[in-house]
């Protein structure tokens, strides 16, 4: 459905003979106006990214000047090296990678199984439980964070990765929903044939459904990556020692002023580096992202 790139409006325009301008002329003007607006919008949206890049290469003196400069007069790559020398940025990156990996693995395992159960197996209370699951989507993290904190404090998990990674192995409503929608679309005949051959339900899931579900697995992986990479709240609440900080938390160290000045070039260099994995994943997986959105937003 998402591939249906045809634009109905322009298509029908060619069938309306009453317009004063010729069809092609009208189209040309329309396309030009569309381009014009899209380009303006794109430029505006890209300004902050450009500003980040430009600032990250400036000297502190050039940052603190008026009028502002767009292109650094001198390109200070040293700012990027400073990031690693001023704070344990490599360590932070490593921590973020570990958290994201754990979160992705946990999410895929713990969401594909319930997704299959909800889509393919009949059991008492299925639709009720599915409804209950969906209601958790509107439950703010705020209403459970204090009990979570107390719970993890009691079992001595604070200041470890466990309070973030372990819950990812216990399902997430949104990802389960994605899996379920995908599994619903796989033809029943495949399942029936396997059953006739004596396949157990788990083998059907493991050897037939999962291999067919690479797109949705990838979609969930991408969503989970972005979530665990960017999350601030839980690391903020659970981590105490600096050596556990992920990038999101560690970068904040640049907000502390040295000699009453915030070093914006270094701050922007760190921010930019922390965004690079996101931008890379996004450019390779844009379609998966959109697919995930389409499943939730349009197919009910």
């Amino acid at each position: 459905m998402a591939r249906q790139q045809s634009a109905p409006v322009t298509k029908t325009a060619s069938q309306a003979p009453r317009w004063e301008m010729g069809v092609s002329q009208h189209r040309l003007v329309g396309a030009f106006a569309t381009y014009f607006m899209l380009v303006i919008g794109a430029v505006i949206l890209m300004i902050p990214f450009f500003w980040m890049l430009s600032t990250s290469l400036k000297t502190l003196d050039e940052v603190n000047t008026w009028p502002i400069t767009w292109i650094p007069s001198e390109w200070i790559w040293q700012n990027y090296i400073d990031v690693f020398q001023r704070i344990p940025f490599a360590r932070f990156l490593m921590n973020s990678i570990m958290l994201a990996t754990g979160g992705i693995v946990g999410s895929i395992i713990s969401c594909s199984l319930p997704g299959f159960g909800f889509a393919r197996l009949r059991f008492p209370g299925r639709s009720f439980l599915f409804f209950v699951m969906l209601t958790t989507l509107m439950m703010p993290a705020w209403v459970v964070i204090v009990p979570h904190f107390m719970m993890f404090n009691t079992i001595g998990w604070l200041d470890t990765f466990l309070p973030i990674v372990v819950p990812s192995f216990f399902g997430n409503a949104f990802y389960i929903f994605l899996f379920r929608q995908y599994f619903l679309g796989i033809p029943k005949e495949l399942e029936d044939a396997a059953r006739v051959d004596g396949c157990s339900t788990f083998r059907i899931f493991w050897q037939i459904f999962l291999p067919m579900s690479l797109p949705v697995i990838a979609t969930v992986a991408v969503f989970a990556f972005f979530y665990y990479w960017n999350d601030l709240l839980y690391p903020l609440v659970y981590f105490r020692s600096q050596h556990n900080f992920p990038v999101s938390l560690g970068m904040r160290m640049f907000q502390t002023a040295e000699f009453n000045v915030i070093h914006y070039p270094r701050m922007m260099a760190a921010a930019l580096m922390s965004l690079i994995p996101c931008i890379l994943v996004f450019s390779f997986a844009q379609r998966l992202f959109i697919q995930g959105v389409v499943i939730t937003g349009v197919e009910k």
Binding site: P114, G117, T136, V144
Partner: peptide, 27 residues
Amino acid sequence: EAIEGLLFILPWLVGYLIFRLGPLLAS
């Protein structure tokens, strides 16, 4: 099938009780 179905959704169900419903009542 019903038992298998419940087993399949078990990760979520346990997670819901421990990380959602329980904390919701606690708070």
